[in-house]
Amino acid sequence: MLELRLVQGSLLKKVLESIKDLVNDANFDCSATGFSLQAMDSSHVALVALLLRSEGFEHYRCDRNISMGMNLGNMAKMLKCAGNDDIITLKADDGSDTVTFMFESPTQDKIADFEMRLMDIDSEHLGIPEAEYHAILIMPSAEFARICKDLSSIGDTVVISVTKEGVKFSTRGDIGTANVVCRQNTTVDKPEEATVIEMPEPVSLTFALRYLNSFTKATPLSNTVTISLSSEIPVVVEYKIAEMGYIRFYLAPKIEE
C-alpha cells in the first residue's frame, strides 16, 4: 500500500513539466527515504535525478519499496488537471498495475481522482560517484535560463569557463559569436539574487545548449540554480525543491574531435 499526500501539489506539477520533454518513460521509486526517480534521456546524454523526501509529505505511507513505471507525458497530462492550489495524493495498492492521483481543492469542495496504468520499464540505475568539483556556481535560476535561451539563438553549444574573475558562457554560430560573463556578486538585497562562485579553480567545458535549455524548465521550482563543474566529467545542474529535496540534471560534455 502506497499513499503519499503532498499539500503543495503544484510542486509535483512543476517537477513533471520540467522532465517530461527530456525523458519519456521512467520508474518512480518509493521507499522510506522518499519518492525518487533516476532516468536518462533517450540518447543517454543527460540524466535526471529527483528526490522528494518523505518528511516533505503531509502523509507518507510506503509499506515496502516499490518501483512504478510511468509514461511521463501521460503523468503530466493527469497532473495538469490538478489546480495549482490543490493537494495531490498518490495512491497504489500492492500488486496493482495502476496508480491513482487524487486532487483536493484547498476548501475540500472538489475532489477528483485520476487513475493511470503503470508500465513495465526496463531501466538501468546508474551509480553516481561523489565527485570533487573544481567550481560551483550558484546563481539566480531565471538568469541562467535567460543566458541559455539567448545563446541558443546564436549557436548550438556553449563553452562554460570559470576563472577567478567570473564565469563566461560563450557560443558561436553562423551569424556570429556571443559571450556572457557573470561576476561574483554577493552585494544584493536578497540572497537568491546573488551570484556566487565557490572553489573557483579554472575549468572550461563544452555542452550542448539544447539540453541545458531543457533543464531550465525546472526554473519555477527554485529561485537559484547550482551548477557544479569539473574537468572531463558531466556538469550537474541542481534545482533545490524547498524543504523536500532536489532535481538534478547531469549532462555529459562534448570534447574536441
Partner: peptide, 14 residues
C-alpha cells in the same frame, strides 16, 4: 562541433 559523450561513459550500472 565536437563529439558528444554519453552519460554511460562516466557512470556505471549500480
Amino acid at each position: 562541433r565536437g563529439v558528444q559523450l554519453s552519460i554511460t561513459n562516466f557512470y556505471r550500472s549500480s
